[in-house]
């Protein structure tokens, strides 16, 4: 259950789940660029269409998608309200003392909200359909060109992988230590800031010590299994480009073309 909660991955075997993570990451980048390039609702509509299309093939229920929006709902409302009141326009619709709402502000705010909405939905679709592990693999693979400038891509990837591996273990451990100290009368819920910070010490110290002990043992175990950096290393899991990714590429290309087309189209109208 803890894994489900972590990284909000939604386990399924859909078309989108099976796509190459590199593809999905690139797709997300292009999608974000497209959303930002969109200057009107037509272009945004095109983005939304592509999103709905992908979401439909992802097997992720609509409710799970919406839940991810919930996390940024406050930000969304805050920005909307701010924009609504302070965007200066000409056609005043409603006015009270120094606050006024203009037609332009309404339009602009709706546009901004829609754009933000699409961005959040798009990114969460990536994390919902890709396990943290393959996401890390994808990032490593995409960063490979950086090896030319001696950037330690492989080491970075290994660090990411080990960190992901130890999250559930350390979460469990934190829970256990907290319970043990609670049983000894520790109180984490009441008191002022300083008292609460102090109350964390009996959790933090054992946790840190255990993390060091674990890392030492892990280091030995890695040494014993012949780990010696990236020099001779091969990789078992190669990300492979499949027909799925070809289709995805076409969609990405189509999206970009559509957005640019719609952009120039509306520009020529003006």
């Amino acid at each position: 259950m803890r894994e489900v909660a972590f990284g909000q991955y939604y386990p399924a075997k859909s078309f989108v789940h099976k796509c190459d993570p590199r593809m999905k990451i690139l797709f997300l980048i292009v999608y974000i660029v497209a959303v930002f390039l969109s200057k009107n609702f037509y272009a945004l509509g095109a983005c939304a269409f592509v999103f709905v299309l992908v979401a439909a093939f992802s097997g992720v229920p609509f409710r799970s998608l919406l839940r991810s929006v919930k996390a940024v709902l406050f930000l969304l409302i805050f920005m909307t309200v701010l924009n609504l009141f302070f965007y200066s326009g000409e056609t005043v619709l409603w006015e009270w003392k120094f606050i006024e709402i203009t037609k332009e502000a309404l339009y602009h705010t709706a546009f901004l909200a829609a754009r933000l909405f699409l961005l959040v939905l798009g990114s969460s679709l990536l994390t919902l359909t890709t396990t943290p592990v393959s996401l890390a693999d994808g990032i490593e693979s995409l960063l490979t060109p950086l090896k030319w400038i001696r950037f330690p891509v492989h080491e970075l990837a290994l660090i990411m992988s080990i960190a992901l591996r130890f999250i559930p273990i350390l979460t469990d451990e934190t829970g256990r230590i907290m319970n043990a100290q609670k049983a000894r009368g520790a109180d984490f819920e009441t008191g002022g800031l300083i008292k609460r910070v102090k109350a964390v010490i009996p959790i933090l110290i054992p946790l840190l010590i255990s993390a060091f002990r674990r890392s030492e043992e892990l280091g030995d175990a890695m040494d014993a299994r012949c780990y010696a950096g990236s020099k001779v290393r091969t990789k078992y899991k190669k990300l492979t480009f499949t027909w799925r990714d070809l289709i995805a590429t076409l969609v990405v290309g189509g999206l970009l073309a559509g957005v640019i087309l719609l952009r120039t189209y509306t520009l020529s109208l003006v």
């Binding site: 592990v133 080990i162 591996r165 892990l218 890695m222 780990y227 078992y236 899991k237």
Partner: peptide, 18 residues
């Protein structure tokens, strides 16, 4: 404390990869 990967087969592959 001797497993590096979050999936069994990836972890077993670690030694041979090295």
């Amino acid at each position: 404390n001797q497993t590096v990967a979050s999936i069994v087969e990836d972890d077993i592959a670690f030694g041979p990869e090295n």
